[in-house]
């Protein structure tokens, strides 16, 4: 007969008791990863590192002009989705004005699901930080961009590829900590590519 000493049985018992603990710890790790302390409203963008979508939309202030993605090609630029119905657009507006004045980066606007007359009046009242704004009154470009609210801001590189997206207002902090570093990185990369090409030639 198999004789089990009390000691051995004790060890087996403790091991068994550990199983729920191990399962619990695994569960905690799993849930901690799943419910990371981040805002569930912020969706990861499906468009990072993809070309800015094609469009042909009217210029808000000069309705006779049709703009296309060609306008964003050649240098790193910022594209900001805004609307007059969007309270956070007003919140970020002073920072956008500052960027357009002080920073060496062109800022373009997409006037999203809005009334053109209201939008023009809004820009007159609050000043216009944009090189130009395009009229996306049907929200079709916004859908191509995966936009789900306003404001949203994209960093587009010199080749017209989307490199960064920020959902929510651009505050001075967001500019310093997130957007400016991306722009600087893209410029450095472009410079080193250019010098590599020169060396190759």
């Amino acid at each position: 007969m198999n004789v089990v000493t009390p000691n051995k049985a004790g060890v087996r018992l403790t091991k068994r008791l550990l199983i729920p603990l191990v399962v619990f710890v695994l569960l905690v790790i799993f849930l901690a990863l799943g419910f990371r302390l981040k805002d569930a409203h912020l969706l990861p963008s499906a468009l990072i590192n993809k070309p800015f979508p094609e469009f042909a939309l009217a210029d808000l202030l000069r309705a006779d002009l049709t703009r296309s993605r060609q306008a964003f090609i050649g240098r790193v630029s910022l594209v900001n989705v805004w609307a007059t119905w969007c309270p956070n657009c007003l919140i970020e507006h002073p920072e956008l004005l500052r960027i357009s004045r002080e920073e060496q980066v062109p800022l373009y606007g997409i006037n999203y699901n809005d009334d053109a007359d209201k939008a023009v009046a809004w820009l007159q009242r609050h000043q216009d930080p944009y090189v130009f704004s395009i009229v996306d009154d049907a929200g079709s470009l916004a859908i191509d961009l995966g936009v789900y609210g306003a404001p949203e801001t994209f960093v587009v590189d010199a080749a017209g590829v989307i490199r960064f997206r920020h959902v929510g207002p651009v505050t001075p902090l967001v500019w310093r900590q997130q957007i400016r570093p991306v722009i600087e990185l893209l410029r450095r990369r472009a410079e080193s590519d250019a010098s590599n090409k020169k060396n190759d030639a």
Binding site: D39, H41, L42, W85, C86, P87, N88, I91, G149, V167, G168, P169
Partner: peptide, 12 residues
């Protein structure tokens, strides 16, 4: 920030 955005959407 997202909270403010959501409130905006609810209001609108």
């Amino acid at each position: 920030v997202a909270g403010v955005m959501v409130t905006g959407v609810i209001l609108l």
